Amino acid sequence: MILNADLLLDVRAETGEGPVWSVDTQCLWWTDIPGKRLQRFDPASGAHRIFPMPGRVGCFALREAGGLVMAMEQGFWTFDPETGAIAQLSAPEAGLADHRFNDGRCDPAGRFVAGSMNVARTSSSGQLWRLDPNGDTVRLAGGVTVANGLAFSPDGKRMYWADSPAERVYTFDYDPGTGMASNQRLWLEKGPAPGRPDGAAVDADGCYWSARWVGGAVVRFTPEGKMDGIIHLPVSRVTMCAFGGPDLRTLYITTAREGMTTEELEREPLAGGIFVAEPGVQGLPEPAFKG
C-alpha cells in the first residue's frame, strides 16, 4: 500500500499533535503544543474552534463525564470546553522544569497513560505515567528522552511506546485489568522506514501506524514489525495520526513547522497543516477517560 495524503486544513500549527476523534460528536480534536491551544474541527459543518490554554498540552483524551483530561506541562488537568474551566488533578513531575508531558492516550479500560520528555533532549529522563479514574498516578516505565508512539493492541494486552531521538519502539505486556506494564522489549529500531518514530495509532487489524518525524510519511507496521504500507505527505515533520470519520476509515494526520528555517518553509508551505488519507482499513474507537 502506497498512498498520498491530502490537505484538510492549512492551520500552520507550530507543532500539531495528539489528534483524537470523537465518535459521539464526529469531530476531530488536536493540540498545538508550543502554540498552547487545543483545536476542534467538525468535518460535516466545517466549524473550526480554537481553545487557548495556559500551558503546553502534550496530549489529552475525551472524558466519559464530558470535556477532556489533559497532560499539560508537568501535570494532569481537566478541561470543560463549554465553560472554559480548567482544574488540576495531580502533578507527578512537579518541579521538573526541564520536563513536560508529550504523548499519550487512554488504555482500553479508561485509564489515561501519558509520557514525558526532556525538553533539552540532554538526558533519557522521560517517564511514563498512568492516571487512574480515582486520581491516583502510577509510574509505569522510564528511561526515554522523548516519550512518543503510545498505543495499545485491539485486545489491550500489548502496549507500544517509542523514544523518538533513539529511533526505537518498544512493546510491553499490558494487563487491562490492573493497568500494569511489564516485559519491556525492543520491537523496532531504525530500519527502512523514513525519519524517526513520532506519534502512532493501531488499526482494527492490530497494525501499528507510525508518524515519521522528518520522514514525510506515516508507515504501517504489522504486529511482527514488518513494514507493509506507507502514506506520503508533502511535509517532512509528521507528528501523529488518528482514525476517524463515520466508519473510522479516515486517517487524520497532524504535522509541524516549529524550528523550520525560512528556506525549509518555502519548500514546505503546508507544514503544520492537518492532512487526511483513506487507507482502506478501519481504526479503533478511542477510549474515554473514566474519571
Rank of each mutant, 00 (worst) to 15 (best):
K36F: 06
G199W: 00
L62R: 13
A97S: 15
R49E: 15
A65I: 10
T78M: 11
S182V: 05
V276Q: 05
Y208D: 01
D203T: 06
P176M: 05
I2C: 08
A109Q: 11
A277E: 04
I230A: 02
F221L: 07
A141I: 10
F275P: 00
G18N: 07
T171S: 15
R249H: 10
G195L: 04
G16N: 03
D80A: 02
P52I: 09
N102Q: 11
G225D: 12
K190E: 14
S123W: 07
D132W: 02
V281E: 02
R237K: 15
T25E: 14
M159E: 01
L9G: 00
G66A: 13
E64Y: 06
G216T: 05
G244Y: 01
P194Y: 14
L7Q: 05
V281T: 13
A71I: 06
D42W: 01
V113W: 00
L270D: 11
M117Y: 13
L68Y: 06
R139A: 10
G273E: 09
P43L: 10
N148C: 11
V119R: 06
D203S: 01
N148K: 05
T222W: 12
T262C: 09
W213A: 08
Q39E: 15
A44G: 03
A97T: 10
M227W: 11
R56T: 13
K190M: 10
P52E: 14
R168N: 02
T145S: 12
D103T: 06
G244M: 03
A162T: 08
R56G: 08
D107C: 03
V281H: 07
D32Y: 10
R49C: 12
D173Q: 13
C207L: 09
T222G: 08
P279V: 06
L270P: 01
A200T: 15
G283F: 00
R63I: 04
T83N: 07
T262K: 14
S45K: 08
T137I: 09
Y208S: 02
D42E: 08
V119Y: 02
R185V: 11
D205H: 12
T25I: 00
R257G: 05
L284W: 00
D155V: 08
L270E: 09
G273C: 10
R212P: 08
V57L: 06
G16W: 01
T239R: 09
R100P: 04
A120K: 11
V219W: 00
V238G: 05
R220H: 11
E167N: 12
L89W: 10
G229T: 10
K157V: 05
G215C: 11
G66S: 13
G280C: 07
A120E: 15
T31N: 07
Q282H: 12
